[in-house]
Amino acid sequence: MFFRILSIIFPIFAIIGAGWLYARLRHRNGGGIDMAFANQLNMEVFVPALVFAALVSKDFALGSYRDLALAALLLMFGSGIVAWWLARLLGEQPKTFVPPMMFVNSGNMGLPLMVLAFGDGALPAAVVLFFVENLLHYTLGTWLLDHHARLWNLWRVPVIFAALLALAVKFVEVPLWPPLLVAIKLVGDVAIPLLLFSLGVRLALSQWSDVRLGLIGMVLRPATGMLFAALLARLLALDERDAAMLMVFGALPPAVLNYVFAERYHQEPAKVASLVMIGNLGALLFIPLALAMTLQ
């Protein structure tokens, strides 16, 4: 079991480590590093292509993932409620603490992790979890930080547009030319390694500004996530694979997008950066734990 878990997590953390090492070496040699264009290209082209290809595949049937999507939503809401209560107890601003405890790294880490752990057939379910998390992050997450934010143009977010387009294609049963679908899949294949590499770069550039809050979040995020995953899997009678994927989803660390949103809305970005960085380092402990609990 140890070597099986190691074989799953090693490629993920090796690529993250490569990004971290590259950024540190560039910084040490006096060179700057700007991942802005690469990240923009990934979120506007490669990840949408990955989402579209997964959702239009023959293996994807929307109705079969309804309970998994509902479980993911309830898990995030439950984690958010616990985090709101603890933030009040600690004297921290809920707007700072709650989003990183709710919205997880379902893209950078979740997608490759679930494919490596559960096989290529798990990609559609992993994409559903990624889409549900992103949709809630861009809606509720934005509203939490700015109650006056306009959400009517959410469809313009490339990842969400790609998912809606794929669902429309599946609904009207539009046949796609196989070579076109192959091309879209090839473009989407760029997304996962670039997501991991850019995460490593981001972690290398982050600051340890509030270790106390970061350590609390490092434990709270996966602990509440895995607890709600276990309860919801039983309550909704999820099948074995979906229950295992939900457990891994619950163990994921805070999404890097939390830091991006905190910067945009001036919501204590230094504290959020620490929550994200320390939480992702804590994944070295909690991800293997979640895999040990789910793999047979």
Rank of each mutant, 00 (worst) to 15 (best):
I33N: 09
L232P: 08
E263I: 05
I160K: 04
N42S: 13
A23Y: 13
F261N: 08
G19W: 07
P99S: 07
E240T: 12
G141T: 05
R150T: 09
L252P: 09
Q207M: 11
L68N: 06
K170R: 15
H266T: 10
L176D: 05
R24V: 01
R24T: 01
V132D: 01
V127G: 02
A183M: 14
A292T: 08
A61H: 12
I192R: 10
W177D: 11
V82T: 11
P193W: 10
I278C: 02
F10H: 08
G250V: 11
A183E: 10
D67V: 00
A233P: 00
A233L: 01
P178H: 07
L199I: 09
I8E: 02
G282S: 11
W85Y: 10
W84V: 04
P112L: 04
R150D: 06
G30M: 10
G78E: 03
H137F: 13
G119M: 05
P254V: 08
F286C: 12
L154Q: 11
G19L: 03
P253T: 05
L6D: 03
M1A: 13
P175Y: 10
G78C: 05
V128Y: 07
E268D: 15
V256L: 15
V172K: 09
R88F: 04
S206Q: 11
V82M: 12
L68C: 07
V182W: 08
G107N: 03
L116Y: 15
M101D: 02
L203T: 08
M293C: 06
Q40V: 09
L70S: 01
A251I: 00
G17E: 04
A168E: 00
Y65K: 05
W84Y: 15
Y265R: 09
I16P: 06
L196I: 03
V260F: 06
L291T: 11
G141I: 00
L203D: 01
D67W: 11
M277H: 11
L195G: 15
L213K: 07
L154R: 06
S209F: 04
V190W: 12
L55H: 01
P99E: 04
I12S: 10
K58M: 00
K271Y: 02
L186N: 13
P193H: 12
A290G: 07
L62I: 02
A122M: 01
A122S: 13
F103D: 02
A270Y: 04
A87L: 05
D59Y: 00
I278L: 15
V128S: 09
A270Q: 15
F130E: 03
R202L: 10
L257F: 15
L281H: 05
M109C: 06
D239T: 03
H266Q: 14
V56A: 07
A283T: 08
L220H: 07
R24P: 02
D242T: 00
A270R: 15
A292S: 13
W84G: 07
L73V: 14
R234A: 04
D210R: 14
A38G: 12
